[in-house]
Design a binder for these strands. Structure first.
Length: 414
RNA sequence: GGAAGCGUGGCAGAGCGGCCGAAUGCACUCGCCUUGAAAGCGAGCGUCCCGCAAGGGACCGGGGGUUCGAAUCCCUCCGCUUCCGCCA
């Protein structure tokens, strides 16, 4: 959530920033709700103070009558205060993070700004096949069985494709661990608190699978589990920055994506991902955002995929992000770049909701957090498309072979 | 899933319904002592909210209730421990 104290002190800065993502009306409503909350707080605190000055031992009967009246008044005021707080908090929960000045202007993915490109788009002397055409005939990727098992947008992967995917995850974890990221395996089910804290609730509820009976949600990213590690903690200064990387399966309902990317396993309800997550000092987050992006580029380059980097438009950001970079790999059969990784600086937005602080000079401050994709199955799809030959044989990136991937997908043994 | 017990400050551990935001020990910080360290001695040492400040308020797992008054009584939820059952 945004810093309400700061918002009171410099409302204009917040107004201007939030207007870029169309949240200024909510912000005005929040300021009004906050003002009435503060008034009530003052009143209630005074009444409580009066009541605390009660006799320190058993009062007389006449004193008790007096105290009873005071109690009633206090209770009424407390009820009002509770309502005011609920109203203020509901508004606060919906206000998105302040966009970073350098985040791109605009409202949709079309408004993203291309920062750079890397690698050579492949030239084929034949019509390239997409991952499904390559994978389906040989039984590597099976959407039909996925559908029979769980419905549309679920994929089975078999054999060498399954092995290559696993090699990719292990490779990325290795590289990140070498850079000081602590490998993590965590829960993929989360209760309401971490979902709220990471900003997926309340705004993204329609994209979450929920288990009503148990009051749990399936997480759409291990960002949730990684953010929750230090929930409600006060970290020591020398523990920061703290870098984590997790493997997890992720679940997304893809509400609102009907008809989009319906073919193959490009956009599915369940996919696996390596995630990076960092907790840091406020003054470090911009630099660490660059570090996460650099890590992502290094990994994509190691796989050899042609890509571009884009700065996402503020109107297209998730609630908690101040700024976001996506890496988009070239997909020959689509003739365009498509998102394969993404990294966000969420500044203090998630940390404030999750109540994650650190101690400095005897005071507590809110940490900054960032998240980014290590790799997902989408990169494998890009590998299949970019590195295929006329026979439909895919050359697997060299770096994956020590991790159990075959040299090629589909080649006859030499 | 069944039975019992327990949840207090960084940890350990007290706490008759009013004198408890909370004893005590350990840890930690600062100072003294010491060539240095340890020991010893002295002081300090939770978080949050409102307020420019002075100051005021809240918090003893979460929520609700009883009471003039609750860490202390009641309800409920959550978590943990032990025993039984089941199980990768």
């Amino acid at each position: 959530m945004i810093d309400l104290k700061a918002a009171r002190q410099e409302p204009d800065r917040f107004r201007t920033a939030l207007a870029r993502r169309d949240a200024e009306q909510d912000f005005e409503a929040l300021l009004r709700a906050d003002a009435s909350w503060r008034e009530l707080t003052e009143r209630v605190d005074k009444l409580r103070a009066a009541q605390k000055r009660r006799p320190k031992s058993a009062p007389t009967p006449s004193e008790i009558d007096e105290l009873k009246r005071a109690k009633d008044e206090l209770r009424r005021s407390e009820d009002e205060l509770g309502q005011a707080a609920a109203q203020r908090d509901a508004l606060l929960a919906r206000i998105p993070n302040l966009p970073h000045p350098s985040a791109a202007d605009g409202w949709t993915d079309e408004d993203a700004i291309e920062l750079r490109t890397w690698g050579e788009k492949p030239e084929f002397g034949f019509t390239p096949k997409d991952h499904l055409e390559l994978g389906s005939p040989r039984g590597w990727i099976d959407m039909a069985r996925g559908a029979r098992m769980a419905g549309s947008r679920f994929a089975y992967r078999f054999g060498d494709v399954a092995l290559t995917e696993m090699a990719m995850y292990r490779f990325v974890i290795d590289r990140l661990a070498a850079k000081g990221f602590m490998p993590v395996l965590g829960p993929v089910l989360a209760s309401e608190k971490p979902m709220y804290g990471t900003g997926f609730l309340p705004t993204d509820e329609s994209n979450l699978y929920s288990l009503e009976k148990d009051h749990l949600y399936l997480t759409g990213t291990s960002e949730v589990a990684l953010a929750a590690i230090h929930m409600q903690e006060i970290l020591e200064l020398d523990a920061l920055p703290a870098r984590y990387t997790a493997f997890s399966t992720n679940f997304r309902r893809e509400a609102g994506a009907a008809g989009k990317d319906t073919r193959g396993m490009f956009r599915v309800h369940q996919f696996d991902k390596i995630e990076m997550y960092v907790y840091c000092l406020p003054e470090q987050s911009e630099e660490l955002h660059d570090e996460l992006l650099a890590n992502e580029e290094e990994l994509v380059q190691a796989l050899g995929l042609p890509y571009r980097v884009v700065n996402i438009a503020v109107g297209d950001l998730g609630a908690s992000a101040a700024k976001k970079y996506d890496i988009e790999a070239w997909f020959p059969t689509q003739g365009r770049y498509r998102e394969i990784t993404s990294c966000s600086n969420t500044t203090d937005y998630q940390a404030r909701r999750l109540n994650i602080r650190f101690r400095r000079d005897g005071r507590t401050e809110t940490v900054h957090t960032l998240n980014g994709t290590g790799v997902t199955a989408r990169s494998l799809l890009a590998i299949m498309e970019n590195f295929q030959d006329e026979r439909g044989v895919v050359t697997v990136p060299e770096v994956l072979r020590p991790y159990g991937a075959p040299a090629t997908l589909g080649a006859a043994p030499e």
